[in-house]
Amino acid sequence: MREHTEAIRPPRALWVTFELGRPLGIPDDPDFQRRVLRATAELLERTDGPLIADYPEEVAEEADFTGWACPINLTPQATGTLAAEIDRLATWHDQSVARTGRTTVGVSGLDMPAAGALLSAALAGDLPPAQTLKEAVDDLRAYYLEAASAFPDPGTAKKRKAWLWDETVFGKALLDLQPRLAASEHPQHRILGNLTLIPATERYRLAKK
């Protein structure tokens, strides 16, 4: 944050306007990333700090694909259960791993059916420790979004995130779980429910429920 950087006064900072989570700007664009990193490193040569230098390049919003639709019908009514949805996405996740050579799933140590079972149990009233649940949910979120990136017409990252909340049993499960966590007697459950389960940009969905 610009405001926090101005308060802290680090010796040298480069200000970029890219989406949070993408400090180097654009995935799979080595030239762009190299320019940002070089601009950052070259600040080391300056001795007029504390300073904040403005990076001149911006990133345009990803081009949208009108008519984007999920190629397999994952609407809650169609798939029924979370377990079935997780299973149905496995082949797409395999495609993603084959294409990129990696996955960011693997924080919880659970396989995806087990992570799904944990979430289903939580929804049924059997709340596991908050950290265990958080790691399982984050792994599932990564699994869903990586799987969706391998769809034949994957659309933009923004579309895929909207898909997760609009059209999946998983997204609905998280929204259903939030009030249970927020009402828990355990502070860690309440932190999860109130801060680290639903992104701020999606919390309006709770009010609609």
Binding site: G21, R22, T100, R102, T104, V105, E146, S149, L197
Partner: peptide, 21 residues
Amino acid sequence: VMSHISVNFDRTGFQQDHNVA
């Protein structure tokens, strides 16, 4: 892998290309 507690930043960029983060 990434286990940041915040859900208020994009992770799809990192999922696609670790170098973006």
